[in-house]
Design a protein around this nucleic acid. Sequence first.
DNA 1: TTATTAGATTATAATTGTTATAATTAGTTT
DNA 2: AAACTAATTATAACAATTATAATCTAATAA
Lengths: 143, 143
Amino acid sequence: MNQLKEALDTLKDTGVRITPQRHAILEYLINSMSHPTADEIYKALEGKFPNMSVATVYNNLRVFREVGLVKELTFGDASSRFDFITTHHYHVICQQCGKIVDFHYPGLDEVEHLASHVTGFKVDNHRMEIYGICPDCTGKEVH
Amino acid sequence: MNQLKEALDTLKDTGVRITPQRHAILEYLINSMSHPTADEIYKALEGKFPNMSVATVYNNLRVFREVGLVKELTFGDASSRFDFITTHHYHVICQQCGKIVDFHYPGLDEVEHLASHVTGFKVDNHRMEIYGICPDCTGKEVH
DNA sequence: TTATTAGATTATAATTGTTATAATTAGTTT
DNA sequence: AAACTAATTATAACAATTATAATCTAATAA
């Protein structure tokens, strides 16, 4: 249940050193229910680590991705977003304000199978984003 | 059936001028079965328009997106890709060589409905990418 | 056809997100 | 505690995209 503890164990098991910066970045990713960019993480931890470099944030996000703790997401906008991997879910994105909400739904296995059959790919996984207008923005659409 | 002609009509209808550059970019998007980046388009048209600026490519891709002729796609890699909109389809992407193959499949309406119900969003559309290893790369995976 | 004008293109500079490099620092192991 | 290796920092480099200002041109109508 303690996601942070499990994540730290994963790092230990894969031989990745646990530094204060890593600890803080992981903690931030787990606790933030948003899907932060590297820069948001950097700014959020500025108080605790005044000397931390942006490179450290990027390096560690890459490490976390490589050991499977974190997923890197690219939407239409400029920078990548990072999502601590818990259970399988999709993202619903507001086209007005950019809010991202998690949407839990059983994986679309049959779609994967069909895609594999039609294209000849050995299919691994998929991602899906659903776009719309969030409740807060309904009625405020720009045309 | 003539996609280019229809696209040009769309531009005319929305009051967007048809310049030689626009014509060429549109034509290239329609004929290339790939999903080119802005830079690929720029390089491909270098011969015909030696003086064309990259900014022109970007500007026009934005215009095409705004009038609904083109979809901008971001995958994991650095730059956006652009897809002339025809019928509804998904993309199957090779994790080894980056090849992108179209995969036609009826839209996942029920997923949209459920997402709308659960999140309260007014859902508009969705996108999905399926990742795997293409036939050419099978057996050549890097670990 | 020509003149007009709003909009498009060009060339360039600026901006932004991300990665590479080299020196320093700090976990971990002996 | 010493040694070794990996991580962090600071900085520079890079690449994709956007902004700006000057020039040019497609569409329109006289």
